[in-house]
Design a protein around this nucleic acid. Structure first.
Lengths: 252, 252
DNA sequence: AAAATAACTTGATCCGTATCAAGAACTTCT
DNA sequence: AGAAGTTCTTGATACGGATCAAGTTATTTT
């Protein structure tokens, strides 16, 4: 998108305090002065285009990154040349937390569309957090939240059917778009069916068939990347294994 | 809980600096004085017995816990009454990191055998870490490492065959026992086949059949919980999908 | 605008693993 | 020690989703 006027970006002050995403990337607990200080270490580079890597597995780790617009896929290459998609990230989301562990990125991140990010040099963030208890607290929570999310994903991959996986996936986007002030029921997915399948541990064909079936069942309308959820409550039922469980024995 | 000979335990000085596990739970970077200070906030309670909960999902979170002996299973209950086993934890391993996020435990932890733990009150740890940059650094790394481990598990559940899953599982224990000074090839598993299956996203029967098959193929000898790995290199081959991939095209 | 390529869909078939079932080995209780 | 309950193993069968194959619709290149 922002192809030409690159230079202007370098000059933009980040100003987290005015950023609509700050409630997402700095959830509660920081005073305005804190934000000011944090602001001072954040760098905003020029935007990435579809297919550009933000970093690759093995790259030296220096910064955490907050997506400010666009979307990003993280993945880790596996033995046999394939990859495991680890996540899709929307504006306000922080990536790179897995790399703190040994100063190297363990996975790769690639822009799914034109994408802008704020870079937060980690060593500076660390220093700052050691003189700002509230920031330190935020960081611990953020890291812990990431663990919790991975944990949910383990349950999804370990126990859920293809149908439940796709419903979970769609509702996750629905909720995240809603949080960001967009429609919870009408949105565009920036990734391919193949990437969705990879993420959910399913074959492309299965994903495609499920979209068709969900549409036949009037749960949604889909046309390529454009998805309209028509029956969100029923999608939630599916997530909870509505058909698998014996009827009306909601939890024993 | 603390029924009879409570007093004696309360008086035991934890003395991380003499603890053989300290390289595991405090991996590098802390000076002896640092360790002394950390030591001062750590509490050691009386041991748990098989089946005792260390905490349950929903419990108020106050402490991280390091296993000092025995073993622990963490799991999260899911919608339909079942559970997803999240991990098996050996001496030197830290649990509870997922609970920082909202001051409540999101999953449960149960002793698989007689188990002792050190409790580290998190609020004190947090205060300490804000005046001890090296401790703060350790904490960030520890949290990040946990994320990295979850990520590997996602690949396992998303892409690997039953065979690869069990081989990965066995080698993980092999490596961890070895790190702790025990045999890498001869050990006891403290969990049931059912729990292994749950953890790996497999049915009990599949786990049982795989043990039998691995034994037939002379990869190991197994008798109930007692496992002897007879061909570790071949197990590593299996982990990497040795048979699935086209022969000798190790990575394109 | 046509050609080439990539992404997606749909159908047919196959396979790995779940599920069902029953017996064996072990553990716990009385 | 015997009974009762678990846990584990093994076999038979079923099924969900993968794979193979081919056609369709977008997108990119020329």
């Amino acid at each position: 998108m922002t192809s030409r006027k690159v230079v202007s970006f370098e000059n933009i002050k980040v100003a987290c305090k005015n950023c609509s995403l700050s409630t997402l990337c700095l959830p509660m607990g920081l005073t305005p002065e804190d934000v000011e200080r944090l602001d001072s270490i954040i760098k905003r580079g020029r935007p990435y285009h579809r297919g550009d890597h933000l970093y690759r597995g093995g790259d030296k780790f220096h910064s955490l990154r907050v997506i400010t617009s666009g979307s990003v896929k993280t993945y880790s290459p596996n033995e046999d040349g394939g990859e495991q998609v680890l996540g899709f990230h929307l504006p306000g989301e922080l990536i790179g937390l897995d790399a703190i562990q040994d100063d190297n990125h363990t996975c790769s991140a690639i822009a799914l569309e034109t994408t802008a990010v704020c870079e937060i040099p980690f060593s500076q963030l660390e220093s700052l957090s050691s003189i700002m208890p509230s920031l330190q607290h935020q960081m611990y929570r953020l890291l812990s939240r990431e663990i919790g999310q991975d944990t949910e994903m383990l349950t999804l991959l370990g126990k859920k059917s293809a149908e439940e996986r796709l419903a979970t996936f769609l509702l996750s986007f629905s909720e995240r778009f809603k949080q960001r002030g967009f429609s919870a029921s009408d949105f565009f997915l920036s990734m391919s069916r193949h990437e969705i399948g990879n993420y959910l541990g399913l074959a492309v064909e299965t994903v495609s068939r499920l979209f068709t079936r969900f549409q036949d069942e009037k749960l949604l309308h889909v046309e390529r990347k454009h998805v309209q959820l028509l029956d969100i409550p029923r999608l939630y039922d599916i997530v909870q294994g509505a058909d698998r469980a014996k009827p009306s024995q909601s939890r024993i």
